[in-house]
Amino acid sequence: MGGHHIDVGQAPDAGFVVLADPGGNEMCVIEPRNSFLAGTGPLGEVTCDGTRDVGLFWRDALDWPLVWDEDEETAVQSPLGGTKISWGGPPVAPRLGRKRQRLDLVAADLGTEVDRLVSLGATRLTDLVDGVELADPDGNEFGLRAL
């Protein structure tokens, strides 16, 4: 399907294989016995570059439990299970333009939800035709749109 092996410094006996898709996006294929991925589906985790603070922000913004908080790395997961979203902690790569990963949220009451997210540490960036663009505490843009 166009993927290829890449080396990101993993040990030869690591319990995972690192691949890149045709666009150069990295992904790990992890053995099923990995306990961190228990309770997830085939897409076990989406890994983001970010600080512990941004992991705590998304915990509160999504109202999902923090399922990992160790050595500045954090992860959240829906209370219903499924894919985890994690942040790798420092050092955070320098920002060059917009991030490829983007979260978009929906809300019944945009004004109330914008106020709540700002109180959690988000920054309001701009109004959109159908919502608002904000940034999380690390400066990553995300959208908030009406249901």
Rank of each mutant, 00 (worst) to 15 (best):
M1N: 03
G2F: 01
H4W: 06
H4A: 15
H5R: 03
I6Q: 04
Q10F: 11
P12F: 09
D13T: 13
D13Q: 15
D13I: 12
G15F: 06
G15R: 08
F16H: 14
V17N: 08
V17F: 09
V17E: 10
V18I: 10
D21F: 04
D21H: 02
N25Y: 11
M27A: 15
C28K: 06
V29H: 06
R33H: 11
R33F: 06
R33C: 05
N34K: 03
T40A: 14
G41W: 12
G44P: 00
V46T: 07
T47R: 11
R52K: 08
D53Q: 15
D53K: 13
V54D: 02
F57I: 03
R59K: 08
D60T: 02
A61I: 00
D63L: 13
P65M: 06
V67N: 04
W68M: 14
W68S: 07
D69M: 08
D69T: 14
D71V: 15
D71C: 15
E72Q: 08
T74S: 10
Q77K: 10
Q77I: 06
S78T: 12
L80Q: 14
G81A: 10
G81R: 02
I85V: 12
I85S: 00
S86Q: 00
P90V: 06
A93N: 09
P94G: 13
P94L: 15
L96N: 11
L96D: 10
K99S: 12
Q101V: 11
Q101N: 13
L103S: 04
D104N: 12
V106P: 06
V106S: 15
A107I: 05
A108I: 07
A108E: 13
D109S: 06
T112S: 15
T112Y: 07
R116Q: 08
L117T: 00
V118I: 15
L120D: 08
L120K: 09
G121T: 14
L125T: 03
T126W: 04
G131M: 02
V132G: 00
D136L: 05
P137G: 06
P137F: 05
D138T: 10
G139H: 05
G139R: 06
F142I: 04
G143T: 05
G143S: 07
L144I: 03
R145W: 08
A146I: 13
